[in-house]
Design a protein around this nucleic acid. Sequence first.
DNA 1: TTTGACATGTAAGCCGTTACATGATTTA
DNA 2: TAAATCATGTAACGGCTTACATGTCAAA
Lengths: 206, 206
Amino acid sequence: MTSHHRLSATTYVVLGLVSIRPMTGYELTAYAELSIGNFFPLTRSHIYAELDRLGRLGLLDATEVEQENAPTKRVHEITPAGRDELRRWLEDPEIKEDRTRSLFLVRIFFGDRLSPGQLSALLDDFEARAVIRRDRLAAIADKLAGQPALVFRRSTAMLGVRHEQAMLDWVAEARPMLLAEAEATATGGGGAGDRAGYASQPGLPR
Amino acid sequence: MTSHHRLSATTYVVLGLVSIRPMTGYELTAYAELSIGNFFPLTRSHIYAELDRLGRLGLLDATEVEQENAPTKRVHEITPAGRDELRRWLEDPEIKEDRTRSLFLVRIFFGDRLSPGQLSALLDDFEARAVIRRDRLAAIADKLAGQPALVFRRSTAMLGVRHEQAMLDWVAEARPMLLAEAEATATGGGGAGDRAGYASQPGLPR
DNA sequence: TTTGACATGTAAGCCGTTACATGATTTA
DNA sequence: TAAATCATGTAACGGCTTACATGTCAAA
């Protein structure tokens, strides 16, 4: 008798993390941030809510553990039903990708509204953050090297490294073009105001 | 007197699109999907709701236009207050990037739960979709080439191309490693069950 | 004595998706 | 006559974030 639940992706992710080993909400928060947080961020509040939900559904079991030097903690453990449910989800070929949104790209899209200085600062900031993320992910990948069982986790970090490097390559390529246009607009006609030509040249493919 | 609103990113994006030229909700939906939809997807329902909100705030003006061969349409146009508000948002250096989540990476992270066949199918699907997106974005970038004023929009497409290409490069690199491990796990000890070793080897950097 | 780590939750509220609902006109 | 395009909305619901709220112990 397989009871077929419809849960959110976040719920399954929390279930998956607990399936690795029993954890408290607190531990899970830290663990999630270091691991899956790089491509699926979770908030602590949300984690607690999901642990509660999973418990009510019988997919997790909670055990209170008293401690000497710390408050009583609640350790969550996956149940057989939880494992079934998790596997079903992981194997489901129908899962559709989450939307991805980039406010950075929105601002580039409307880049003609920015002064050269503002545009330059925007690119610098984007670049600096990408470098930090890339290096952090590269360090993670390094640390996981050499252990075949960890190749899955390591690969997620490596994808992140490639992604950030691609962003950096893009900045290097795009910056001169974007700044040249921003300066031409600022010094040439129109100043910082909205330029005409959009209605007739919406700049979109048919 | 600048009335300082706190609106969601989506609200500003809709405002920004209307600022390009006056549009109906219907037009805007199509326009958004082709342009900004590649990095900031919007749903029609949401667009209508935001147009309504922006109208109530006085950032947009709506005009009903009767037509001969189609129902009356409502054309939305940005107001001076709307332009101010939009510019303020675009120039704000404090805007923080949206979370990005990848369910694909979640599944790779838990890749040891998948059979070699399932893993291979997952990678194939990811790769095929990346190729489609890359080629579509490359076509957009091509079409926008040669027009200096469109370099901002073109750059967003180029970033997308780089991103998708990076994903494809990653698949080429990661696939052999992932499949090798999946096969070793499937044929070697333990079968498809959960392997031990996670508690002692959580696979995370300290 | 104050900061940080450990530890757990509640409440409010917007955000965003999906489904529901309608109807005319043109084209194949 | 069926499908596609034009055109606009409402309603329900869940997802997710942010802020609020509390308390111990160890170390600096």
